[in-house]
Amino acid sequence: MNNRHTVEFKVNGEARSLEVFSMARLLDVLREQLQLTGTKEGCGEGECGACTVIIDGQIVNSCLVPMAQVNGCEITTIEGVAGGDQLHAVQQAFIDHGGAQCGICTPGMVLAAVDLLNRNPEPTEHDIRNGLAGNLCRCTGYMKIFESVVRAYKK
């Protein structure tokens, strides 16, 4: 049985066409076939959010998305958040206010924060906590992450 299919989609604005197993995880294809290793795997079961990417304007866990569901989609990964050398305000705030420690949760956390601010430009603390509830961080205790998000929109 050949379960490979051609899947066409856009990543960070660039059109891609790949031969993949229909059930292959988007996470693996990003990391292994497209060398976009900024998307991380922390659990493989939708629990940690390290693999967060944005598909068609919504955050998803790329470890839970099979390639067959990516056909025709637009994907943004952490590599596509900054505009060239110009960091996104969220990225800059994470650097300036201690939002990243070991950094392994950071790509997912930054994407979740970017998405939150897209939907809700002035979130309350409650909104921030809930908006990031699917992204686990073991280093920071979250305080500096919340602060980074606040600083990013207050800028």
Partner: peptide, 13 residues
């Protein structure tokens, strides 16, 4: 990933 992915099929109608 512990599954043998080539064995799985996900077809899109």
């Amino acid at each position: 990933m512990r599954a043998f992915i080539p064995n799985y099929q996900l077809t899109t109608p």
